[in-house]
Amino acid sequence: MASQGTKRSYEQMETDGERQNATEIRASVGKMIDGIGRFYIQMCTELKLSDYEGRLIQNSLTIERMVLSAFDERRNKYLEEHPSAGKDPKKTGGPIYKRVDRKWMRELVLYDKEEIRRIWRQANNGDDATAGLTHMMIWHSNLNDTTYQRTRALVRTGMDPRMCSLMQGSTLPRRSGAAGAAVKGVGTMVMELIRMIKRGINDRNFWRGENGRKTRSAYERMCNILKGKFQTAAQRAMMDQVRESRNPGNAEIEDLIFLARSALILRGSVAHKSCLPACVYGPAVASGYDFEKEGYSLVGIDPFKLLQNSQVYSLIRPNENPAHKSQLVWMACNSAAFEDLRVLSFIRGTKVSPRGKLSTRGVQIASNENMDAMESSTLELRSRYWAIRTRSGGNTNQQRASAGQISVQPAFSVQRNLPFDKPTIMAAFTGNTEGRTSDMRAEIIRMMEGAKPEEMSFQGRGVFELSDERAANPIVPSFDMSNEGSYFFGDNAEEYDN
């Protein structure tokens, strides 16, 4: 993207840094990872977990959730003011799984939030270390993106479920800051804005008074975040219109849905970061690795190297396929839920299948599930090659597409044709070009129609051997075009429920 120079890199967003050079960025990201790792080690000690239990991804998720809940100030305040039966607002906890007599047992633990905050700050040299908290939120978000298709949420806001490739980060909490905003897809931002506008339509006082002023500035800020994701002048001009509207209503909703559809071809720039579970960072720190000293990046080879040398386990339900569970977590670790499966298959070195073909449910185990038949197995999170994460949407291309997802959002900077089903997408653009945004709409449609099938995206960008740390010898991959490109292809993934 041309304006790259004016933006802070995501590592800076990730670490609240002012302008830093590459070495400083690597050190501050490393410091953040160190903090998460030290916190995780301490929690495993508190909970008396064995090494194996500490490497269980379900335990990692519970521990991450506990610290996120302990620092969720708004919710904590709300819980104190609106006490609900049987919930102690000062405590947080969740299921911890232990191996007892050759069987997995679930144990519900409860801790004072104050105590968890103390352990977290102690692991982070006394700081609140917001960057580390956001990092864990993005890992949870990436896992949700890989596990669930947001059909219901899309339909509720009037969008087409086939636009799911635009929904990265749709389950990120509001408090995820600049680093969170960077990884949100165009569809996620559109959905947040539509929800806001709908509230304004239904509630006369939404934009009024002292609160209304705050609401208005939040609305304009979200519009600017979305505008910054678009790469064409016409899309940005249309966002200006939406932002400046005196009284946002149905016309703005129409414009936003139009823009979301246009992003299936004229893709937005959305950041991709490899955020790993805390149970990967903990053992690495415990083994003596100093992330701050060595430096770390979320968008280069580092996460690949770390996963190459990590042992992570997962509980497996009786009829689940461990290899499929591994694929789910591998995609989440690489922030690749909406990437082209052919690119992923090449990088991973084994075939990556669409969601609907995987015999696996989510990673988390519900409290009512029976533990008797639970097994555990090693997650295979290694890769054959590594590639640089991208934040450009890439230019655009036609490809055989599917009944489910009709476009992709690249996660890796790797040369390819970008699949999208042009006739299906263009069919949504018939007729409606009147109104105050008509010239911009016409211009956007013209650009979409001009998108050429034979153009290559990320020209000359390749993948790298894991021994090639400096990215000196790019390998331009070859793809098996007979395979499906979309992950949520004609899909039956479970729906995400809060």
Rank of each mutant, 00 (worst) to 15 (best):
R355T: 01
A493E: 03
N334Q: 07
T151R: 05
T171A: 13
V463D: 13
V67I: 03
Q398E: 13
G212E: 08
K229V: 11
W386L: 06
D491A: 15
E210Y: 12
R416K: 14
G295K: 13
M191C: 15
T92A: 09
R102I: 04
L341M: 08
H82C: 00
T15Y: 05
R243W: 12
H272D: 03
A263I: 09
L266W: 12
G393N: 10
D16G: 14
L56V: 13
Q405K: 02
T146C: 07
G349T: 14
P423C: 06
G268P: 03
N473T: 00
S165W: 10
T6K: 13
A131G: 03
M371C: 06
I406F: 08
V29F: 04
N368C: 01
K198D: 08
T360Q: 07
L172D: 07
N395F: 06
F429K: 12
M196T: 04
L418H: 06
E115L: 08
N125C: 14
T62G: 01
N309C: 04
E53T: 02
T146M: 12
G158A: 08
I201A: 00
A251T: 12
Y313F: 03
M105N: 04
Y148C: 15
C44M: 14
N142H: 14
S353N: 01
R19A: 07
D88A: 02
R55P: 03
R391T: 04
E254N: 12
E484K: 03
M1S: 10
S383T: 01
S245W: 08
K351N: 09
G450I: 01
K77L: 02
L298H: 09
N473C: 04
Q58A: 05
A451D: 05
C44P: 04
L154T: 03
G177I: 08
S84M: 02
A85C: 00
E46Y: 14
Q459L: 00
G362L: 11
I388S: 05
G249W: 08
G394C: 10
Q12T: 01
V343R: 08
V280F: 12
C279L: 01
A403N: 14
F338Q: 07
G228N: 10
K422S: 01
Y78N: 13
D160T: 04
S170T: 12
A373C: 01
P354R: 00
N309I: 00
P161S: 15
W386Y: 08
I194M: 09
K113H: 01
T130E: 07
I119D: 10
L166T: 13
L307Y: 15
T15V: 13
M196G: 12
E252K: 08
M1D: 10
P303M: 10
I388C: 10
R75P: 08
I57W: 08
A471M: 10
P173Y: 07
P410Y: 08
I445M: 14
N319Q: 01
A2F: 10
S335D: 14
L264I: 03
I301T: 14
F338Y: 01
D468T: 14
S326Y: 11
E114Q: 00
F479V: 00
T15E: 00
K113C: 10
L61N: 06
G282W: 08
A85R: 00
P89E: 06
R75H: 13
G300E: 12
V414E: 12
I33N: 13
D290W: 10
N211D: 09
N144H: 04
C275E: 09
T92H: 08
F206W: 11
Y487E: 11
N247K: 04
S28K: 00
A251V: 04
F412M: 15
G393W: 10
L307D: 06
G462D: 10
R261N: 12
P161Y: 09
S262R: 09
Q235P: 14
A451P: 02
N125R: 01
M456L: 13
N483G: 13
R175E: 10
A179I: 04
V109F: 01
V100Y: 00
Q12G: 01
R246H: 01
V109L: 14
G212V: 08
D128H: 03
L172P: 08
G93P: 12
A278E: 09
K422A: 00
A129S: 08
A336G: 09
H82G: 13
Q459E: 14
I25K: 01
R162W: 02
N397P: 07
M426E: 01
I225K: 12
S482Y: 10
K184G: 01
N492R: 07
C44F: 04
V280M: 05
D145W: 10
I197A: 02
E64M: 13
Y385T: 14
L47W: 10
I265D: 12
I138F: 12
M137E: 07
E454C: 08
T215E: 12
F206T: 01
L276G: 12
G126C: 08
L256E: 08
S141M: 15
M163F: 15
A153C: 03
V463I: 06
S310G: 08
Y111W: 01
L276Y: 12
E11H: 06
R175I: 13
N498V: 13
R117N: 04
L358K: 11
P277I: 10
M189R: 01
N498T: 06
T396D: 12
L381F: 05
I225P: 09
T430R: 00
H324D: 02
E465P: 10
L166S: 13
I365S: 06
F230C: 05
N211V: 15
I25C: 09
M32K: 04
T396H: 05
S407M: 10
N247F: 04
M105L: 01
R65I: 02
G17M: 05
R342H: 07
R243P: 02
D51E: 01
G485I: 12
S377N: 14
D88S: 02
E53F: 04
Q58V: 09
D255I: 08
N59P: 02
F230N: 08
G462L: 14
F429N: 12
C223R: 12
A179H: 10
E495M: 01
D468F: 10
E449V: 12
T232V: 01
D302C: 08
E495V: 12
I444H: 09
I201W: 01
G404S: 06
R216H: 03
Q168I: 07
I388V: 14
A284C: 14
F412S: 03
T360S: 03
Y10C: 12
G177E: 02
E24I: 03
R199V: 09
T378K: 04
A218L: 13
A129Y: 05
N417M: 00
A70I: 14
A178N: 06
V329Q: 14
P83H: 02
L110E: 10
T23P: 00
S438K: 09
S297H: 10
R204D: 12
S3Q: 12
Y148N: 06
N211T: 15
E294L: 02
G435N: 11
K184V: 08
N309Y: 05
G394D: 13
R156M: 08
S486P: 13
S367P: 14
N397F: 03
T437P: 12
A70K: 09
I444Y: 07
T157D: 14
M374N: 07
G94S: 08
A336P: 01
E443K: 04
V363D: 09
G126D: 03
A237R: 01
N395A: 00
A27C: 13
M66D: 10
S310H: 09
I388E: 06
S287K: 10
N492Q: 15
S314V: 00
K77Y: 01
S141D: 13
E494S: 05
I365A: 08
G349H: 10
Q415E: 03
E114W: 04
S9R: 03
F258W: 10
L381P: 14
I119A: 04
G132M: 11
G462K: 10
N124K: 12
R216Q: 10
S274H: 10
E494K: 08
R199T: 04
W207A: 06
R470T: 05
M447V: 15
K48W: 09
E192Y: 04
L68N: 01
E294Q: 15
P303L: 14
S69N: 05
I347R: 09
N124A: 05
R74P: 03
R243Y: 08
A427R: 01
M371W: 04
P277K: 04
H82R: 12
F488W: 11
W139C: 03
S407H: 07
S141G: 00
D16K: 10
W386A: 15
L259F: 10
V280L: 14
G177T: 10
K214I: 08
T45G: 01
